[in-house]
């Protein structure tokens, strides 16, 4: 099981802050593909923005490997400061 968190505009448009994904995926990219196949809403919203990701709370590229028990966060480019 992989925990997936959403932030900012993505969280708002999905109406969801967190979900669990139980799928055989090896990278964040594959995880995103699985979500997109799950519903039209995911397909639409995950394609709308430039997507950044964090794996276990580290900002990393979408090609990063993931495994069972990881926490993956998907979000638009950050705008703090």
């Amino acid at each position: 099981m992989i925990t997936v968190k959403f932030f900012a505009v993505l969280r708002e448009r999905l109406g969801l802050a967190e979900t669990q994904v139980d799928a055989d995926v090896s990278t964040v990219q594959e995880l995103v593909q699985v979500l997109k196949q799950q519903s039209e809403r995911y397909a639409k919203e995950l394609d709308r923005y430039q997507l950044l990701c964090a794996v276990n709370q580290n900002l990393l590229p979408l090609t990063t490997e993931v495994k069972d028990g990881d926490e993956v966060a998907l979000f638009p480019p950050v705008t703090g400061g």
Binding site: A8, A54, L59, A73, F75, P76, P77, V78, G81
Partner: peptide, 10 residues
């Protein structure tokens, strides 16, 4: 901070 820290402004 502006490009790496996870903050978002609305």
């Amino acid at each position: 901070l502006k490009t790496q820290a996870p903050f978002w402004k609305k």
